[in-house]
């Protein structure tokens, strides 16, 4: 399949085009991070029936800018007994790993930064690269809380990677491809062609609807755990570990961890959108279709899942470590095996 990329079409395949392509997600990411931080502040406030930030700008809408400026101004402390190279490297690895995920995210049928045909696999691979940053930061801080937080993060992410991989495997079976654009194209048409509703195909898929629903829920739960969001924020549980792996970080480096967390939130939301909710496809057939509306549909679908993550954060309390392992190994994994078999059967019947 020939890769459609509007930047290449406009100015040809030269280094300027490559620079623009690699910077576009960054611009998007900055804008998104500001919106998501504000969303987090305001949604948490409204759920608790508070007003939230109100002073900076009308209704406090430039509060995230103030927060970022504040973080950048703060003194950047490196503890004396920390291992300096590792300590300083960790936030960069963490952020680079999350940003690498954006390389294959198809924002529209005419824009994907890098249209490799192993996109799904690539996302899975770089998604777990961030753990190295977490563990590095936790270990190099030379602080018991940081180390505990880093170890917990690794245990948690490695465990939840497996149900998530099962889900992605199922999608690979259903779509017969690892190319994200191809996966999205197969879900075109009305919203009942989305993989969460069993993908396109005859009425036989109705029997398999529960399985694809469960698959979607499994992926949402596993992705919450992979981004260390509540209720799976055990690596940074403030009541037991101060701030977990980033206890010793301040200023700019803390901001990078923070930024990476928000970037990860968007990446997992984007993956859910791509593999279950039709990516840039319009839910209503050709209504508001096309590449430009595609960006709109993709971003708004992804924001729904970002909202879901924030909503869950202010709903559920933190799990215990043993409950965390129970959920992953004893609940998500068997369920995902069963659903994998069922959905493979569906693919054979189609």
């Amino acid at each position: 399949m020939e890769e459609a990329n509007f930047v290449f079409n406009m100015i040809g395949e030269n280094w300027i085009a490559f620079a623009i392509i690699s910077l576009l997600p960054m611009i998007f990411l900055l804008a998104y991070a500001l919106i998501a931080i504000l969303g987090e502040l305001k949604i948490s406030a409204f759920i608790q029936e508070r007003l939230g930030p109100m002073r900076t700008g009308p209704w406090g809408i430039i509060q995230p800018v103030a927060e970022v400026v504040k973080l950048l101004q703060k003194e950047d402390i490196t503890p004396d007994s920390a291992n300096k190279p590792l300590f300083n490297l960790a936030p960069f690895i963490m952020f680079a790993a999350s940003y690498a995920g954006f390389a294959v995210i198809p924002f529209s049928s005419y824009f994907v930064p890098s249209g490799i045909n192993l996109g799904l696999f690539f996302l899975l691979a770089v998604g777990s690269l961030g753990i190295i940053g977490l563990l590095m930061g936790g270990w190099a801080s030379n602080n018991k809380y940081s180390l505990l937080g880093g170890l917990r993060a690794v245990a948690q992410i490695v465990s939840y990677e497996i149900p998530a991989a099962m889900v992605i495997l199922t999608i690979a079976v259903m779509a017969g491809s690892l190319d994200l654009q191809e996966i999205i194209r197969q879900q075109s048409g009305w919203f009942w062609n989305w993989f969460v509703f069993g993908g396109s195909g005859g009425w036989i898929k109705i029997i398999f609807l529960p399985f694809s629903f469960i698959m979607c829920i499994i992926y949402i739960i596993a992705s919450l755990a992979e981004t260390n969001r509540t209720p799976f924020d055990i690596p940074e549980g403030e009541s037991e570990l101060v701030a977990g792996y980033h206890t010793e970080y301040s200023g700019m480096k803390f901001a990078m961890f923070f930024f990476a967390e928000y970037a990860n939130m968007f990446i997992v939301s984007a993956i859910i959108t791509i593999i279950f909710f039709g990516g840039w496809n319009s839910p209503f057939g050709d209504f508001m279709g096309g590449p430009i509306w595609g960006v709109f549909w993709f971003v708004s679908k992804a924001f729904v899942f970002v909202f879901l993550q924030i909503w869950l954060r202010w709903t559920l309390p933190r799990l215990r470590v043993d409950q965390l392992m129970y959920v992953s190994w004893k609940v998500l994994l068997p369920f995902s095996f069963v659903c994998f078999l069922a959905l493979s059967l569906l693919v054979m019947l189609k």
Partner: peptide, 15 residues
Amino acid sequence: GMRITIDHLFRKNVT
């Protein structure tokens, strides 16, 4: 729990 929190999301602020 999610139903309860979404309900509170649209309630009037008390502060």
